[in-house]
């Protein structure tokens, strides 16, 4: 089923391929930068050599460079792209599903569920390494999302989306209180938790991260399939139904999609708050509100933001780092502000 909406064109059509080409080119450049920049200086030429000759085939310094590039920087770059895409797409689906421009994927309780189970993992089971609690985070976020759905999906018609949001907020608040209470009493846990909760891409075990990719792939696929339906969904439950949309099914599918994407991203990188909320807004302002296009553009814009933030975080505080979760807001917020203040208004409604 395809629905053609009355187009609100932003920019002329001739320019659009150029924008796409530019964005993808920029993403490529950022990938290279991400491979080249780090606490250890490796010349760009050496990076290319290292990429072409995985460790073992060269010798001496080339080997060291190759190990760093292949085992640290490539996984990290891939992770940044995956997390960025997942969060941005989840944000688009979430805002479409709830018809609320303030909605962000974390509102499904995903972040608070993950946070609570990470805190429990650290505090009760004494786990300390990221790759040990990644599955706790994933399970926690999935459980919270299911609870929110069960609580919130019994509304009908216009109340349904408000209901879902409020259920998410209520559950998040309650879980957050438990998390707060545990971290208040247990300072060791609080010490690990305050680092986890910022969201960072540093020091992630490549193996664990790669195990999450099926969830991400299914989520993104589902989102792209849902794209046309979300356009009809935006018109309201009744109109959507009149257009042949199976509203409950779309809502459930969207829900699964957001849970998979956001759960996996949060498990992998911690709650990176800003991407899912703001990338959809920025993309809508540039491209109008056709969900198919917004989804596709988010797949590029999300990685752009997260990757750029991660690189900037590495450069800003060398030889240390600023976590990507902190930089995203500082990089993304001015962009959104500029878009808002340019006076074109938001295409969120």
């Amino acid at each position: 089923m395809t629905i053609r909406l009355a187009r609100r064109e932003r920019g002329s059509r001739a320019v659009r391929p150029l924008v796409w080409a530019g964005a993808i080119l920029l993403l490529g450049v950022l990938c290279l930068l991400s491979l080249a920049i780090g606490s250890r200086d490796i010349a760009p030429a050496d990076v290319v050599t290292a990429l072409l000759h995985p460790a073992g085939t060269g010798g001496g310094t080339a080997d060291a460079a190759s190990i760093i590039v292949w085992q640290l920087r490539v996984p990290r770059t891939v992770l940044a792209i995956l997390v960025g895409a997942a969060l941005a797409v989840a944000g688009v689906v979430m805002q479409a599903l709830t018809r609320n421009p303030l909605a962000e994927p974390g509102l499904l309780g995903v972040n608070s569920g993950a946070a609570l189970s990470v805190v429990v993992a650290i505090s009760v089971f004494g786990l300390t390494r990221f790759d040990q609690y990644v599955w706790f985070a994933f399970a926690g976020s999935a459980a919270a999302a299911v609870a929110v759905y069960l609580l919130g999906a019994n509304g009908v018609g216009r109340v349904a989306h408000t209901q879902l949001l409020l259920a998410g907020v209520a559950l998040s608040a309650s879980l957050g209180a438990v998390t707060g209470l545990i971290t208040l009493f247990d300072s060791t846990t609080f010490d690990s938790y305050r680092v986890w909760t910022v969201g960072s891409l540093a020091g992630r075990d490549p193996g664990t991260v790669l195990m999450l990719w099926p969830a991400l792939a299914v989520g993104v696929g589902l989102a792209l399939v849902l794209g046309p339906q979300l356009n009809a969904f935006a018109l309201g439950d009744d109109t959507g139904r009149a257009l042949g949309l199976r509203v409950t099914l779309v809502r459930a599918a969207g829900f699964v999609c957001v849970t998979l994407l956001c759960g996996a991203a949060t498990a992998a990188a911690g709650p990176i708050a800003f991407v899912g909320l703001v990338v959809p807004h920025a993309v809508r302002m540039l491209l109008g509100s056709d969900q198919r296009r917004v989804l596709a553009a988010s797949l590029v814009a999300g990685p752009l933001l997260v990757l750029a933030s991660d690189i900037l975080g590495r450069v800003l505080a060398r030889p240390g780092e600023v976590e990507a979760g902190i930089v995203t807001a500082f990089l993304g917020a001015p962009v959104l502000l500029w878009l808002v203040l340019r006076g074109r208004g938001a295409g969120a409604r």
Binding site: F274, V278, A329, A333, V340, A348
Partner: peptide
Amino acid sequence: ERLVLVGISIGAMLAAVND
């Protein structure tokens, strides 16, 4: 809507500062 959008972007920056 504009006020809300400006609010959430400034709010997000400050939340990052807090973290």
